[in-house]
């Protein structure tokens, strides 16, 4: 593998495009120059820090350090999941459900992809685990979030219809059938769309990265196909787990609708 390493000068040259943006903003008094600067510095510091941390973790190549960073990633993803919900289940409930789903589905899918499919040695090599877990979590997060959002909104809007079914003797899953199906459809449709247009509309990020790093495009495509299978599978399973868990949280053991467990709407 061969690729052109970037020097600090190269980065400064790339930043020149942003400086042009800032100059235009100043010239027309758009008031965006400071925001541009802050966002650019923030991005650079974050990515440099991640690069530094990953360097350290890769150097250790110990199962303990790999597990630690994996746990941090899951927790951050769980936090992001809660932030995305407009109307939340009482926070510890959805926090628990979101994190449990991400940990279980994300963790298992990543382990499966790394240990069974890629099988590097040692199996816990963070060079494989960390990027794959990152992609799995990012994608699963989106579909889990969509599923929970659609489910809670649907439960609220269709409260009367759900309760009518419950009053007629339906179990909680029978009563939620319509809302549940819509939640899963909403969460899973984008996954199908992404698979259908992969490589046509734009090259997937990971494949682009591998090609830039000097990997043969055919090999890069194989990796991308593998990742697509894993990401879509994990996202779909995440949506199922979150939606079924959501129905259990929005009802109780007596099969009563428990919308009181939804927190207050955020301003």
């Amino acid at each position: 593998m061969s690729y052109v390493q970037l020097s600090a000068t190269d980065l400064a040259l790339a930043a020149f495009l942003l400086v042009v943006n800032g100059a235009i903003s100043l010239a027309f008094r758009l008031g965006l120059a400071v925001s541009f600067g802050v966002a650019a510095v923030r991005m650079a510091v974050q990515l440099a820090a991640v690069g530094f941390v990953l360097n350290f973790i890769f150097a250790q190549t110990s199962p303990l350090w790999t597990m630690l960073i994996a746990l941090v990633m899951v927790l951050v993803a769980g936090y992001e999941l809660v932030q995305r919900q407009e109307r939340r289940l009482r926070s510890w409930l959805i926090y628990g459900l979101g994190n449990a789903t991400l940990l279980l589905v994300g963790g298992l899918a990543t382990l499966y992809a790394v240990v069974v499919v890629v099988h590097p040695s040692p199996w816990y090599a963070p060079r494989y685990i960390v990027p794959i877990l990152g992609m799995v979590l990012g994608n699963t997060l989106t579909s889990v979030s969509l599923a929970l959002q659609t489910l809670t909104e649907g439960a609220e809007r269709e409260r009367a219809a759900i309760e009518a079914r419950i009053a007629l003797g339906a179990t909680r899953f029978e009563a939620f059938a319509t809302v549940l199906r819509r939640a899963l459809r909403t969460a899973i449709t984008p996954l199908l769309n992404v698979m259908s247009v992969a490589g046509i509309v734009s090259l997937p990020g990971m494949m682009t990265g591998q090609i830039l790093a000097g990997v043969d495009p055919g090999e890069a495509a194989k990796y991308q196909i593998m990742i697509m299978f894993v990401l879509t599978g994990a996202s779909g399973l995440g949506a199922f787990a979150a939606a079924f868990g959501g129905v259990l949280l929005l009802t109780d053991a007596r099969h009563r609708l428990r919308l009181d467990r939804l927190g207050a709407a955020r301003a």
Partner: peptide
């Protein structure tokens, strides 16, 4: 009522709202 599952109870003891709701 707690001696049987909720749905079974509600198949025997039926509440009908003044404004019936429809899901289909």
């Amino acid at each position: 009522r707690r001696e049987m599952p909720g749905p079974e109870w509600r198949r025997r003891v039926r509440y009908a709202s003044a404004e019936p709701a429809w899901w289909g």
